[in-house]
Simulated scan of single mutants.
Amino acid sequence: MTEQARTIFIVDDDPSFLRGIERLLRSCGYATRCYESALDFAADHSPDAVGCVLADLRMPEMDGIALQRHLAKSSNPLPIVFLTGAGDIPTSVEAMRGGAEDFLVKTAAKEAIIDAVERALARDEEERRERRRRRALDKDCEKLTPREREVLRYVLKGLRNKQIAHEMAIDERSVKRHRTNLMAKLGVSSVAELVQFAVEAGLSQPE
């Protein structure tokens, strides 16, 4: 599947400002899509969308913070930059704690807006790459049989083959076979690489 082009999704209930910021971004070479309400954007938000969101803070029905929370819960949490005419310190703190890339006033300089957009786009690319990597790790883990998973847990605890055989009530040769198979499936060739894979895949070690 071909990945969609990077797009700046602009959400603001002020039509004149919406068109103005759209012209600014388009003049700088960005693709844009405009929405006059957060609800309209939320209804149209695609799991395949690539880019970032540039949103007002105070909007009817669903405000910017509510939109931010909605994005955070979605399968495609695009980075958000708040560009508002009615910011305050408590709200800006809440927005930044919620993961906003930046919080700017609408009178901010063009350079500041473009800088925030570029950082948000870079963040989206990095987070998208990380999600792809995690999906690949999860897919590799799904290849393991229950026995191989059990051996893996004991290996991560630092047990030797003989100890694992005792814990699982099987012979040491079977442990070696399971261990060889699971390492081949996970694409690792040493215990160090196996531990690194487990850390990256978020596999917890049993008590």
Rank of each mutant, 00 (worst) to 15 (best):
V175C: 12
M96T: 11
R123D: 06
M168R: 13
T2Q: 14
D171P: 02
L121I: 14
E207A: 13
R26V: 05
K162L: 12
L137H: 03
G51V: 02
V11I: 09
G158V: 11
D14V: 15
V53E: 09
R147A: 14
D102R: 10
A192V: 05
K143I: 06
D124V: 02
R123N: 09
R135C: 01
V151Q: 05
R23I: 09
L203C: 05
A31P: 00
G98C: 07
Q205F: 04
I113E: 04
A112S: 14
D88T: 08
A165E: 06
D44L: 02
E172S: 08
K162Q: 13
L137K: 06
L194Q: 06
L144P: 05
I65H: 10
A108C: 04
R134S: 08
Y30K: 00
A100E: 06
V199K: 13
E3V: 15
E167D: 06
Y35V: 12
C52G: 04
K157N: 08
D13S: 06
E101D: 08
D171Q: 13
A184W: 00
A38R: 00
V50D: 04
L159M: 14
Q205V: 15
Q163D: 14
S37R: 11
K185S: 03
A198S: 14
E200M: 10
G64L: 02
D14S: 15
K139R: 15
S204M: 12
L186V: 03
A72G: 07
H70S: 09
P146M: 00
V117M: 07
H70N: 12
L137S: 11
R119C: 08
C28W: 10
Q4C: 05
E36M: 14
R123I: 10
Y30V: 04
E167Y: 07
V105F: 14
F41N: 00
